[in-house]
Amino acid sequence: MTMRPAYPRALGWRHLAVLVMAALLLAASAARMDLGRLAQQMVTAVLAPTGLAAGSPETRALGGMIAQLAPIQLSDRRDVTSIADFDPDRLPPFAYLETTTETRLELDPDTLVHAQVARRTTWLVQPFGYAWQVAGEMLETIEIALWGTIVAIILSLPLALLGARPLMPQPIVRNAARSICAALRAFPELLSALFLVAAFGFGPGAGILALGIHAAGYLGRTFADAIEDADQRPLQAVQATGANGLVAFRMAVLPQVKAPFVSATFYILDRNVRTATVVGLVGAGGIGQELKGRIDLFEYGHVGTILIAILITVLLLDRIAIRLRHRGHADA
């Protein structure tokens, strides 16, 4: 007579040992990171506005910086003498001229005596000039992100095909493709942008390459994983008709992985838009370059406008990505 088997246990002593070990390691790491002080500061920051705790220097500093962002800067005001070929009869739409008189103490070169001098300056005022400029730079940022994503797709597809077990039986080639993917995403975009700006100069080109190279590593691995997770039986069935590997992939695997491919690509596009603003800080084009300049000049009203533009763009792209992703799932 055979023994009646028992229901398998969900947790064994090994699981428990791993959990205890992980908890000890996390506790040691938290002490090294001084997480206790961070938690205390966070609690103070949350409770200070309610009056339950006294404000700390950190919360006051953060509050002060945020307060300086308002009012945001929408208009643009330029001295007409700094505008090349300025024609007062042909002003841009909604623009108008403003004249100011400023009295300054200046040294007379003839008499070498300081005297009060009235200087008249004519300004070209565009009520939404700065908002328009930010919109243009935001568009350039989106273009950098878009081209970075296209570069990533082009680089990642061959790596994914070579790195997926069902399509590449040779472990050496597969491991090499996987290692290249890992190497590509090893360095953050900001770091590679620093080197690429040095090599290719300031501008969007360096940004596109920095985003494309990093994202290719992520997409290559994600695409390869999706191919490996797909049902392999249709692939074997199509290969059994005598089709070559590429045709079998197109007919049996691509329809299965289309939805995860689209999903990962939209995630990268969304991520690239946010990262494109960061790589601009080191001169790789886009809104980041403008943001860095305004921070350096302490023009926090301009910084506020840029931050709002980034927020609106990311939220809009997020909505578009969700819609397209749903459509992709519906079509798959």
Partner: peptide, 28 residues
């Protein structure tokens, strides 16, 4: 177990049976 591409329609699944006889560029 049928070994069909579950996400594709009947037309795409049936035509895959001739994958070895269709010119490569047309299949791709």
């Amino acid at each position: 177990a049928f070994a069909l591409v579950r996400q594709s329609g009947s037309a795409a699944n049936i035509i895959a049976g001739a994958a070895g006889q269709i010119p490569c560029w047309r299949a791709l």
